[in-house]
Amino acid sequence: MSAAAQPSRGHLPKSVRAAQSVAGGTQAAPVRQPYRREIEAPAIAAPARTQRQQVWDSFCSHRAAFISLIILGSMIFICAVGPFVLQDPEAIDYDVLAAQAPSGAHLFGTDQLGRDVLARLVNAGRTSLAIGFVVAFGAAAIGAWVGVMAGYFGGRVDSALMWLVNVLMTIPSLPLLMSVAVLVASPSSAIGPLVKSVPEWFRIAAVLALLGWMGISRVVRSQVVSLRNQEFVEAARALGGTDSRIMLVHILPNCVSVIAVFTTLAVSGAIIGESALSFLGLGVSPPTATWGNMLAEARDLFAIMNYWWTVWFPALAIFITVLSVNFIGDGVRDALDPKSMK
C-alpha cells in the first residue's frame, strides 16, 4: 500500500476519541476519518450551488436522516413556540395535586405535584436543546480554531497546542468532568462567585464544551496540515492574502465536513451528558427543568409502574432527539463524504 495511507490510518482512533470525549466518554458514535481523496479535491471558493445542491440531495436520499431532520425541526419548533401556547409549566393544579393520567386537559398527564407534563417537557426542551447546541457549537469552534492554528502555523505553535490537547486527553474524562462541574456549581469554590450571575444551564454547557473540543481539534489539524501546502493556498498567499484570511476563507471551508459531523454528534452527546450530570446531582438544578433532570427526578420503580407518563415522556424526549440527531449526523457524513456518493 502506498505510504500516503499511513498518516491517515494512524489518526483513525483519535477521531473516534473525539466523539467519545464530547459524550463524556460513554457514548461514542464513531466518526470516520475523512478520506484522503476528499482532502485532495480542493474546494476553492465554494464551487457554485451545484455542489451544495449535490450534498443536499445526497442528504435527502438518506431517508432516516431526512425524516430525523423533520422530527428534530418540529421538536425545536414546538419547544420554541410551545411555552407561548401551553400553560405555565410550573403552575400547580390545585384541584389535582397528584399525578394524573393523560387526558384531554393534560395531554401527557400531570406529575405528582399536578404540573402539566407536556408544558414542562416543552419548557425543559428549550434548556436541553440549548445546552446541546451551545456545547456542540462551542466545542466545534474551539476545536476548529485550535486545529486550524496548529495545522496552519505548524512548528512550535503546532507542538505546543497538540501537546496541550494530548495532556487534556490523558486526564481521565470522568474525574475531570465531575471536578469541573462541582467547581462551577458550587458558589463556595474559587470561581463560584465569578460565574454566579451566569445562568446555570449555560455554566453546564460551558463545562461540557470546554472539555469536549480536543478530539475535533486533532482531526481538523491533520486536515489542515495536508491542505497548507496545496497550490490553492500557495496561490492565495502569493496574491498577498493574510494568514487569518487564508485560514478563514481558504482552509476552514475545506474542513467543513468533519466539523459538521462532529457538531451534529456533539449535540446528542451533550444532551445525554446533561442527563448523566443531572443523575449525579451536578446538572441543572430544579425548578429549572431539563429533560435530564425531569427523568432523573421521576426515575423510580413505583413511578414507572404507576405513573408511567412521568417517566416515559422525558425519556422519550431525550431518546427521540438524540436518535434524530445521530441519524442526521450519519446523513451529513454520508452526504459530505464523496466516497459514499453514487
Binding site: 410550573e90 403552575a91 400547580i92 405535584l113 446531582g281 438544578s285 430544579p286 425548578p287 427526578e297
Partner: peptide, 16 residues
Amino acid sequence: TAGNNLRLKVAQLLQQ
C-alpha cells in the same frame, strides 16, 4: 437545599 424534592415542592407551592 438543592436536590431535595420535598423542599422543592414546598418552595413551589409557597411561591404560588
